[in-house]
Design a protein around this nucleic acid. Structure first.
Lengths: 199, 199, 199, 199
DNA sequence: AATGAATGAGCCTTCATTCAT
DNA sequence: AATGAATGAAGGCTCATTCAT
């Protein structure tokens, strides 16, 4: 009976610790020591498992992205109509475990971080593309391809903009509104596109 | 006849230098020395005029906000209909001098910075409120008050989301699209609200 | 019938690994991990067998010294005249297995290390004394005792100086020259001492 | 009356401090803090003036080399015969201010350091070449060119070997002997070469 | 009005070493 | 016999900030 390796556990703990530390610190200037402290280990161990700060940060981003994907895939599968698939994407973005304070402020830091880290920038590009294509795929079954792309781009930007508002510590409308806002955006855009003659 | 003080000039130069430095550096980790270097003065002088880094950063934010306001007011005045006023706000946000790479990446940094600086957070709150109220005031003349608020919130978030996309160094649609996207959002939302029975 | 212990094998492997690692690294800053890696074992094992880095390094020096002695003794025995005994010592110092890049750069590191490790310094003293006495013993049969000591000291220093030149990574004359240089030194010194009228 | 810049003074102080620190520490692992401490300034200042540890070390080497050259040139000029020029070179190498404990152990560290620093290696190559050519130039006026080169190489190696012996903290013959040893080497070698031809 | 000089505090990172298994 | 896991201690380096000039 081989002793189970603790490596995956430590890695996961450290990535969660990074997200927690980023949030608590108000994100700017998170220290490796702080992150390690959150995970209850020494800074040296974080280095040992990730090789450096940049890699830990990027791994944490990827961690978040993977979670997002893990959540969106079954939701898309369960949806029966194109319109429901769109809602599935929106719901996933605003699901409590994605749209909590901690995660949202981590995202903001990641956005910022992408300005100086190529790896982080690459990861964000992937995220952007995935969100947009998830939306566009469903939209193309409801409106023409040009409209689909434009509405998808708008919805994706709207989602990010709402994240931003909730990420910045400043009086923002209650959480519930965010989802409603995007749903309404979709409805209105579809209605308008329909009028032009769609489906 | 007092010799005109160079203080205001130095202050303005330093704020512009901060924005330029933030952009060039990819925003993360701007040094006081770098900023001072951009302005062609010593780091000690920047301290002398602003008292510290935080204050210089916040002053630069305020500088940007003031510019925004300076631009939006005459545009609002020139508009003749409520719908034109809305476009005036949108146009100002996406005007070349506001929506250039330099400014956009500075904004992203400020958003991030607001997580740890109360002064910066306060400033962002002001900006959010102003953008939203500018839009809501015009919208209230076209749709009911609830709809107006909601559409304003959506448009504001959409604008910020688009800034974000262009701020992050990652393949984003051409600049022109951004404005069109928001205009369309407004049109569709108005059409939908109208149908329900408006003004 | 006791199973033969692997301990001596591991120890020898680790000492050779230390020398190899020192050479490859350009000597400065050899890590215990690197040394262990060269021997194909974990750093913890190196500790287990040697008790610490200093002891491993010193043991490796002693290892080299033992090899030197193992080589010089039969060579001295085979020599028939005092002059041949001197050549035997010189030949041993410049024998291919002693005068290769790896060993030479290890020596340089050991010299350096002796500045901060008493054990290493002691070992070097032994080496110096042995080299010098090996030479002096033979010389005393050819010239007077004072001359013998002086020539021995000169030859020993010359050998070390040549090691140094080849140890430092910088354009040095071809290997063959080194031995010839020392032989000639001996010849010239003997001729001069003889002329003065010796033994 | 411009305030005289302290930069050259600080730089010189720091280089001397580096040499002193290297010696006191037994050379291995000199800390920037230690060096700065010797110079009576903060470690940050050493960084400010030299940019990093490597550069400070290399600058200190160059400092020593420059001193050596500064001393040898007038000595060479004052010499009247080729043989005196040779003695001038030897005397400079063993002059009290060059051949003191502090400088000698610094040299040993530099030799070691050259294994991992290209700049240091380059500097040593220059030193080697200069010492050898200073000797060879004079020797060529006394013996044939091949002999001159060989004797020069031998004398240079001998000088380095003697430095080594005195640099390593181990019972070595009194300082005075070193110079005598080299002078004798030259005399004997010249006599032998002469035998082939001169006197 | 402006700056060169200087520093304290802190961060990332490395590494020898220990220990439970 | 051997190692993965973990850490404390320390080092190089950066940077905002202060101060005398």
């Amino acid at each position: 009976m081989a002793r189970p390796s603790v490596e995956p556990i430590r890695r996961r703990d450290l990535m969660n610790a990074a997200i927690a530390a980023i949030h608590q610190r108000g994100s700017l200037d998170v220290t490796m020591s702080e992150i390690a402290g959150f995970a209850g280990v020494s800074p040296a161990l974080a280095h040992h498992y990730f090789g450096g700060k940049d890699q830990l940060i990027v791994a944490s981003m990827r961690h978040l992205l993977t979670e997002l994907r893990t959540n969106v895939i079954p939701a898309l599968g369960a949806a029966e109509t194109p319109r429901q698939r769109i809602s599935a994407v929106i719901n996933t973005s605003f699901a409590p475990e994605q749209f909590d304070e901690k995660t949202v402020s981590a995202w903001l830091t990641f956005y910022h971080y992408a300005q100086s880290s190529d790896n982080a920038a690459r990861l964000l590009t992937v995220y952007f593309a995935r969100l947009k294509s998830n939306l566009a795929d469903a939209l193309r079954q409801l409106v023409g391809p040009d409209d689909a792309l434009m509405i998808a781009a708008g919805a994706a930007a709207l989602i990010d903009g709402l994240y931003l508002r909730y990420g910045v510590r400043t009086g923002a409308p209650p959480h519930g509104h965010a989802r409603a806002l995007v749903e309404r955006y979709i409805d209105d855009a579809l209605a308008a596109a329909d009028g032009t003659g769609a489906v």
